[in-house]
Design a protein around this nucleic acid. Structure first.
Length: 489
RNA sequence: GGCCCCGUCGUCUAGUCGGGUCUAGGACACAGGAUUUUCAAUCCUGCAACACGGGUUCAAAUCCCGUCGGGGUCACCA
């Protein structure tokens, strides 16, 4: 039988990278073996804005390139794939449990339970709900007055439950440690532990790969699978993702934890997938870069670490750089455009001339281009009429004795160089420096700041050529003006 | 607090099951150097870990016990 996995997010409107990693493991496991990956929305308890939140999740999955065989939009044979639309399934399952006498009506009030919890708290013991005897008269009265009740599963005493976890190994728990738990609320809403068991069973999920926080719940779920007469799936509990440089769980306060932040910076999906896969999983202790196909072929649960891994933005950035280097030029151009538009540097539609210019900038940027927003960040001045001068660079390279004069002469030089190309430019600037007895650094650096406004950037001659003779001379004039004005004040 | 999971360089990890080949390997980051018009890239070098304490053994990162630390769960949340 083929492997069927699922990812079941609750629509909170936020795609945590830890969640994306869990989804990835599921996707890799299923797709790597020719199985199916199912997306299910666990929205039993949410109310509003579910649609927007779901759209965001789907968008994230599409960006990552993790397609789902069954779920929202595509549907499938075991739908619906929204828990909020599966009420009938839960109701039928609950009825079966009622019929076999494995659940009971709990008429307790919130105040009663709160009091018992308080006692447990005071005694420093675990709070466990247990079925209390109820007299026939009382029961009849409750029913007569239509008193609301929750449906609770009666946990059998004296058993040892074991989860044969694919990542953690065999994990045991005594059933006596587990209190009777609610499966359906008085308002008819099923609870997670119940709904997810019903869904996993009915959707024929073979491997439940999910966050570690569910490990303790699994014992209750095992009882439910058994009570419903289902063979439980295999389980694999993935350790949490810790904050950078720590072993503390990664939370929203730890900086960039949402997938959208990386999408917005212009990370590559392949790089993100590569990074996330290596976070908590390794193939042989040596390989760092994996293509999608390699991941599909090489991923296995038994090489997922049982201890937490911390999010490492530096490593993500490095992997991103490796992937960016390997990306074909045409694709870089194509994918850069939206970021340039967003930065207000170009407007669509992008004509052939502008496209050539973008391509030239990307070529000049070379390996300096790591994420797509870098083109705007590092090379914005190629797309504006004037340069914006960085104060530090101006101070360091322009406000020096004789720089204005040197720049004026360089401007004349640029006027003469023909053709206006990298090789000729390079030759003439070298000759100029030699003739004047100035070090190359003292020629090139001021010239760079004068035409780009920045202290760092692509090779100078590339910059000059892309900008063109006229723009270069205009900017040099502007820089000289800047120096003169600064000298007066 | 009870129960459960986890603990190798700052970080991702190899090695742990089946003790010796581990004076603990690779990678990211960091530091220094080479190259160089800046930055990036590249190459070289360096820094750096078996949480702690006992025990078993000829031999322990690897097995056992304890301690400490982190996480989860004990919801009519997921």
């Amino acid at each position: 039988m083929s492997i069927r996995t699922r990812f079941a997010p609750s629509p909170t409107g936020f795609l945590h990278i830890g969640g994306v990693r869990t989804a990835l493991f599921n996707w890799l496991l299923a797709r790597g073996s020719g199985g199916q990956f199912i997306l299910r929305i666990d929205d039993t308890d949410q109310g509003r804005h579910v649609e927007d939140a779901v759209a965001l999740i789907l968008e994230g999955f599409r960006w990552m390139g993790m397609d789902w065989d069954e779920g929202p939009e595509v549907e499938g044979p075991y739908g619906p794939y929204f828990q909020s639309k599966r009420g009938e399934h839960y109701r039928r399952a609950a009825e079966r449990l009622i019929a076999s006498n494995l659940v009971y009506r709990d008429y307790s009030t919130e105040a009663e339970r709160a009091a018992e919890k308080a006692i447990a708290e005071r005694n420093k013991t675990a709070y466990r709900f247990r079925r209390k005897p109820i007299s026939e008269e009382e029961r009849a009265r409750f029913e007569a007055e239509n008193r609301p009740y929750a449906l609770r599963f009666e946990v059998p005493p004296g058993r040892t439950l074991v989860v044969p976890d694919l990542i953690k190994g065999n994990v045991e728990q005594k059933s006596d440690e587990i209190g009777d738990f609610v499966i359906v609320r008085p308002d008819g809403m099923p609870l997670y532990n119940f709904a997810s068991v019903v869904d996993d069973a009915e959707m024929k999920i073979t491997h439940v790969v999910r966050a570690e926080e569910h490990l303790s719940n699994t014992f209750s779920q095992l009882l439910l699978f058994e009570a419903l007469g289902y063979e439980p799936p295999k389980f694999a509990h993935v350790p949490y993702v810790a904050a950078p440089g720590s072993k503390k769980k990664l939370s929203k306060r730890d900086g960039a934890v949402g997938l959208d932040e990386y999408i917005n910076q212009g990370y590559l999906p392949d790089a993100m997938m590569n990074y996330l896969a290596r976070l908590g999983w390794s193939f042989d202790g040596a390989q760092e870069i994996f293509t999608r196909d390699e991941l599909l072929a090489k991923f296995s649960l038994d090489r997922v670490n049982s201890s937490p891994a911390s999010h490492d933005p530096d490593k993500l950035f490095w992997i991103e750089g490796e992937w960016m280097k390997a990306l074909p030029l045409a694709e870089k151009v194509e994918r850069t455009i939206p970021f340039l538009v967003k930065a207000g540097l170009v407007t669509e539609p992008v004509g052939e001339a502008l496209r050539k210019r973008i391509e030239a900038v990307i070529v000049a940027l070379g390996d300096r281009l790591k994420v797509f927003q870098d083109v705007a960040r590092l090379g914005g001045y190629f797309f504006t009429a004037k340069a914006t001068y960085d104060p530090d660079s101006v101070k360091k390279r322009l406000r020096k004795e004789g720089v204005a004069e040197t720049l004026a002469e360089l401007s004349e030089l640029l006027d003469r160089v023909d053709p206006f190309e990298v090789s000729t430019l390079e030759r003439e600037v070298h000759r100029f420096a030699e003739a004047k007895g100035i070090s190359m650094g003292n020629v090139v650096n001021p010239l760079r700041v004068a035409v780009t406004g920045q202290g760092v950037g692509p090779g100078l001659y590339d910059c000059l050529v892309i900008l063109g003779r006229d723009a270069c001379r205009e900017r040099i004039a502007a820089a000289i003006e800047l120096i003169r004005r600064g000298a007066q004040t």
